[in-house]
């Protein structure tokens, strides 16, 4: 089976029951998307399908219709997305493990809402767990990214 990830067709094996998360990580070699819980409770595995945030640990390969975007497709070191720039500017990540998912959720939020309130941020981001407690800086970074025109 093939799906489109970050604009490229990739081979994702032949098991339609495999979660997108594991196909991305173990078969397509895209390991920026993280495994945290396997039950869509922590958000570490968040990717976009046609721009909408989904938990890839609960999305089966056989059900993927549309283009997948992962953290690797958002921006890279030489060409950071505005949200990634804001994340560095506010020095958000600590261990960093949840941050791919946090950034994917934030990018989706800002795409739909260019000036999110605290409540909007809570609604969009409360599915993304961070055990390091980077929430105050995540909030600041989302607001900064909004100002920067994400």
């Amino acid at each position: 089976m093939e799906i489109t990830v970050n604009g490229t067709r990739v081979d994702v094996g032949d098991d339609p029951q495999m979660p997108l998360l594991w196909a991305l990580r173990d078969l397509a070699g895209l390991k920026g998307t993280k495994f945290g819980c396997g039950i869509a409770a922590c958000g570490a595995c968040t990717v976009h399908i046609d721009g909408e945030p989904v938990r890839s640990c609960q999305t089966l390969i056989g059900d993927v219709e549309g283009e997948v975007t992962t953290i690797e497709g958002i921006g890279d070191l030489d060409n950071l997305h505005v949200v990634q720039q804001a994340w560095i500017s506010q020095q958000v990540p600590q261990c960093g493990y949840c941050q791919s998912g946090q950034i994917m959720s934030a990018v989706a939020l800002l795409r739909d809402n260019s000036d999110p309130s605290d409540e909007d941020i809570d609604d969009a981001m409360s599915g993304n767990l961070c055990r390091c407690g980077t929430y105050p800086r995540i909030r600041a970074a989302i607001k900064q990214a909004a100002k920067m025109g994400a």
Partner: peptide
Amino acid sequence: PRVDLPDKVTGRAVFGT
């Protein structure tokens, strides 16, 4: 600026997994 953050915002940082 922390030295580990560029890799941590781009999915490049290598964790054990």
